[in-house]
């Protein structure tokens, strides 16, 4: 059971992409001229925070933990967090006024796509680890 599962590794990569990408790649709109932030910045921060926790959890699941039950629990929590990340831009935290701004046109779709993939792979990982557990 020490074999490293492919969905787990993909989850690590996707979580890393989510938290690093929101900060440096597909970040939200920049600061205003007076130095203040627009609403979308807080959505970016929230996704970044979620991403860090997801990265830590997925690394634990992939490389550190051995027990199938624990792993499947982590996979489930990753699924929940992905759903949360999916809802953050523009639903839980409003983005900017115009949808042709960067937070709408770049950050929101990128976060959405990555979150959907994390959701899918974490459900797959959950199923795998459940099976793994019942086999032992």
């Amino acid at each position: 059971m020490k074999k490293i599962m492919i969905p787990d590794v993909i989850l690590c990569i996707l979580s890393a992409v989510l938290c690093l990408g929101t900060k440096f790649g597909f970040h939200a709109c920049g600061p205003k001229e007076d130095g203040g932030w627009m609403a979308c910045h807080w959505a970016e921060q929230a996704v970044f925070g979620l991403g860090i926790v997801m990265l830590v959890l997925s690394i634990m699941m992939t490389f550190l933990l051995k027990d199938g039950k624990t792993k499947s629990g982590i996979a489930l929590s990753l699924a929940g967090m992905a759903a949360l990340a999916l809802a953050v831009p523009n639903h839980l935290i409003m983005l900017c006024m115009m949808t042709d701004m960067r937070c709408h046109s770049v950050m929101k779709p990128a976060v959405m796509i990555i979150s959907i993939f994390i959701l899918g792979f974490s459900i797959a990982a959950y199923i795998f680890h459940r099976k793994e557990d019942s086999e032992t």
Binding site: D100, S105, P109, I113
Partner: peptide, 13 residues
């Protein structure tokens, strides 16, 4: 679809 639907706003810009 995964590229064009979510990023259509970006393409427009």
């Amino acid at each position: 679809l995964l590229i064009l639907l979510p990023f259509n706003q970006l393409i427009e810009e």
